[in-house]
Design a protein around this nucleic acid. Structure first.
Lengths: 178, 178
DNA sequence: TAGATTCCTCTACACCTGTAGAGGAGGATG
DNA sequence: CATCCTCCTCTACAGGTGTAGAGGAATCTA
């Protein structure tokens, strides 16, 4: 479907050049479409941004399974897969920053496994599951950000390797201790 | 100094409208300067971006003291102050994302208290201070991001309040446990 | 005081961007 | 077959943007 090609290309562009690189014509060129195509599907830039954010959310909704037998391991692997899907995750950060001044985007981006985290904290016997869940979520968010764009992007183990998963597993395990 | 006025205004603009809002003329207008001023000081856009990132780094270099009698507390207070300085911190995130595709910026943005964190982990008797330090840094980064632009921006306690500092203190304390 | 230097303002211009609408190709429907 | 509708391409245009240079005002130097 042409619309998906356009939004996928938009995600790519945003990841590589930031929001500033996202223009109707840039998408056309990058996707090899005739000039005007993107503008026909998304008449305004706002629509284009919302379109690409929606696509992002749809793509992420897929991987949310969690193996109860190895909670720590499956979280670590999920995180690592997000590091591997570098562009998608970078685009998501750009979108979140954008949501700061365009609140409509926030509703699309929810994605937050907050309740999951709270439930997890409760199951593990934390005394204040609400708070522990929030902190845990924050920690995951931070781990991701740190490894992808922060200091860890130059020093950490390469995403997709066993070493990377082990490092993440270690961190997650520690964060889940009551 | 005119240059500082320009870069400060640039920081403000980036925080409020994202990188896309940062143009020579927008800075002129916002700062009440005659058209062309910003362009005279920073001939290219690249120069303007580097200028504002440098200013950002200079402003942050100030607050790095750390009271050894109350490590947790001073970290928590520092974090909270970054939440209060919302615009500056938002601009920093925008800059970090930008550094992803403009490596020159990374060297300006170092700021990383990584060594500090490692030393701290060592002092607290963590078995692998390198790794613990990195995780701790990641955790702080995440706490900040989560509270400022992530899920916690809508649900967390208001920055600048005692409640906010207490929440952060709790999180930091937990993160520092061996 | 005369000249040099620095700092600033103004203006120009090629190019990019957002947005809109006219119209064509081709399939579906009657 | 004629008609309609959908999907697509092309073109237009009013701004905005990056970048450069000419020239003036103010300050410094001798």
């Amino acid at each position: 479907m042409r619309k998906d090609l356009i939004t996928d290309t938009a995600i790519q562009l945003v990841a590589e050049q930031g929001m500033r690189g996202l223009t109707h014509r840039a998408v056309d060129r990058r996707a090899g479409l005739p000039e005007g195509s993107t503008s026909a599907y998304f008449r305004t830039r706002k629509a284009l941004v919302e379109g690409f954010v929606e696509r992002l959310a749809a793509q992420e909704r897929i991987d949310t399974a969690l193996d109860p037998a190895d909670v720590v391991g499956s979280i670590a692997r999920t995180l690592d897969s997000w590091l591997v899907e570098r562009n998608r995750t970078l685009a998501r950060y750009a979108a979140m920053l954008e949501a700061t001044h365009h609140p409509e985007l926030r509703s699309i981006l929810v994605h937050s496994p907050r309740e999951q985290a709270t439930a997890l904290a409760k199951a593990l016997g934390h005394e204040n599951p609400e708070r522990s869940g929030a902190h845990f979520t924050a920690f995951l968010e931070g781990l991701l950000f740190y490894r992808l764009v922060g200091g860890g992007s130059t020093t950490g183990p390469a995403p997709g390797t066993e070493e990377s998963v082990a490092d993440l597993r270690d961190a997650v395990e520690k964060a889940l201790r009551p």
